[in-house]
Design a protein around this nucleic acid. Structure first.
Lengths: 329, 329
DNA sequence: CCTCATGATTGAAACGTTTCATCACGTACC
DNA sequence: GGTACGTGATGAAACGTTTCAATCATGAGG
């Protein structure tokens, strides 16, 4: 149906190879024929079939990206950083959403492998899966995003969550707080646990009490409910540190609805610095992760490995988060 | 490098066609050989090359989706709905982000066309572009999302923004408001204009004053600034209707920071019902668009046209939004 | 006039599938 | 025992590119 290079060749009265040359090495063909061929291309509305090209070439110019949840601003920004760099360096990006489901991750991995992506960026749902490891060992360059796996021989880019927790703790202690609540998602999540570790490390030996409130998920609703209970209880904390901004927004809502003033009655500190943090009813202080930078770095590492596999050596990169102070503390 | 069907055939001691049959019509091949072939596939770690398959087949099983901004919850939810249906019906989805830039849209259109996507879902940046129209006329089924174009012969799915404005107006009038501010992005955007039209229609002849405040973009910061001015001014409105939830969150912040109570001192109504609306400091009333449903419908229309072009006739579908009342009104 | 070098163009092979006409081999039937 | 038939398996062609060795034309140098 769609015109092929052959149709163009006929129309232009040249051979098939010449058309290909016009497309791929225009300098190897004379001015005159080049014009004739380009005219034919325009007339027929020819669009090259990249499937055929890549089949012949044996390698594609696309990268696969599988993230846990595109709705999460954290991953969204990372994806954006990756996309920028990929585009810039001439790669296309195939975006996939595993939705934290191993089955979906598996399906997308197979799909991307069938499409022969040149490289792979992924935040795996669980530990290194069979299929992912096979893909990597079979020679597809792979970069882990927001994860480090011991003993897995590939690049990875992540953020130091312990350091983030420390930043939070130091900030709150410096502001004079001696009773701090840590509202967190399941401590089985490494992020949640690491941030608590950092918090504890920062407040150690300073006479500070840390109340840990674990809720089932990192959603605003759970933050709200946890805060209602906290505020009702006896020794109410003077500061609440949340494992992410959504929880903090929930806590903020609880404060507003019970007439508490932030930060006067209770200080509030989030994590991630999502876009809404700055626009909350009381602009939220938060620990910011360099998401865009993470994405860009991951993409650069991957492209480097794809383009110069010989010169490449795997790196595990760990970024440090940064404290953004606004009105809530 | 990667093992091909030929390698599998050799290993299993059968012909190339037989391997293909095992893959595509397992019932046409005897139990015994099927097992031998499957064993060979497993041993070699064979993964089929879909580029070659699609090249031969002349048609792929993937759909392209180009949206204006994946960070926008509205588009994100639509994408999700599309992805669900596509996956369900056996299509892969290639997700692209035009970022409201015509140049990016154009680049992605070319990319998707080179990849020979089977069908296309798009919210165009501007009017129907040359390249998009060419693609469509060349036979790629296309569905417009959140847009209707007069005289363009293809399916489209959108939401009735005038009706949404009316819903908002009726609700506020019924609550007794007689001075309403409409905080909006550029009125050159159809959505913003239509919602105003609906609002005016609802309040017509009821002795209601509508103050239109136009800001440069649909962002929380602009809502905040607009509200500060509104509140400072003389005849302050008793209700504020915003062209989207982000603006409304900005207005809410202005209210909280100036000590106004919502909804007692000023009622607040948003649009889109993004996830954060429910979790705002004062849970936000909002006009909800059936985003997931829009996505699912668009995908179903497209797949229908791809699978049974003969039985298909183009449809322009218009959904009605719905009012979600929470605590802010 | 012949040889050579240079540059432009050509034609065929190859990439990994799928499809389809053909073939081999039993089995059932008369 | 011969014919017809059904089941499985085979092999070659085709999809649209890219690549590369080979060919051709042209002009320069001897």
């Amino acid at each position: 149906m769609a015109p092929s290079i052959k149709d163009v060749a006929e129309r232009a009265g040249v051979s098939l190879g010449t058309v290909s040359n016009v497309l791929n090495r225009p300098d190897k063909v004379s001015e005159a024929t080049r014009e004739v061929v380009l005219a034919a291309i325009a007339e027929l509305g020819f669009v090259r079939n990249s499937q055929a090209a890549q089949l012949r070439a044996g390698t594609s110019r696309s990268l696969g990206l599988i993230v846990l949840d595109l709705a999460n601003p954290f991953f969204h920004d990372i994806a954006r950083g990756i996309e920028d760099v990929a585009t810039e360096l001439g790669y296309a990006l195939v975006l996939c959403n595993s939705d934290e489901q191993a089955a979906r991750e598996d399906r997308y991995l197979r799909l991307l492998e069938e499409q022969r992506v040149r490289g792979m960026l992924i935040t795996p749902v669980g530990p290194m899966s069979e299929r992912l490891d096979a893909l990597r060992r079979r020679g597809t360059p792979t970069v882990l995003v927001d994860r480090h796996y011991q003993g897995v021989d590939c690049c990875s880019v992540a953020v130091d969550d312990v350091a983030g927790g420390e930043l939070a703790g130091e900030h709150l202690v410096a502001a004079g707080h001696r009773r701090i609540a840590y509202v967190t998602g399941p401590l089985s999540l490494r992020q949640c646990k690491d941030r608590l570790t950092g918090l504890r490390r920062a407040v150690a030996d300073r006479g500070v009490a840390v109340d840990v409130v674990e809720v089932p998920a990192l959603k605003a609703r759970h933050g709200y409910e946890a805060a209602r209970e906290l505020f009702d209880g006896g020794a109410a904390p003077t500061a609440v540190f949340c494992a992410n901004d959504l929880l903090a927004l929930g806590v903020l809502r609880a404060a507003v609805s019970t007439g508490r003033r932030v930060p006067d009655d209770v200080a509030l500190l989030g994590y991630d610095d999502i876009e809404f943090a700055a626009d909350a009813a009381v602009p939220l202080s938060s620990v910011r992760q360099p998401t865009l930078h993470i994405g860009r770095t991951a993409a650069r590492l991957l492209v480097e490995e794809c383009d110069q596999p010989a010169a490449h050596s795997h790196q595990q990169i760990m970024f440090r988060p940064e404290l953004v102070v606004r009105e809530s503390t």
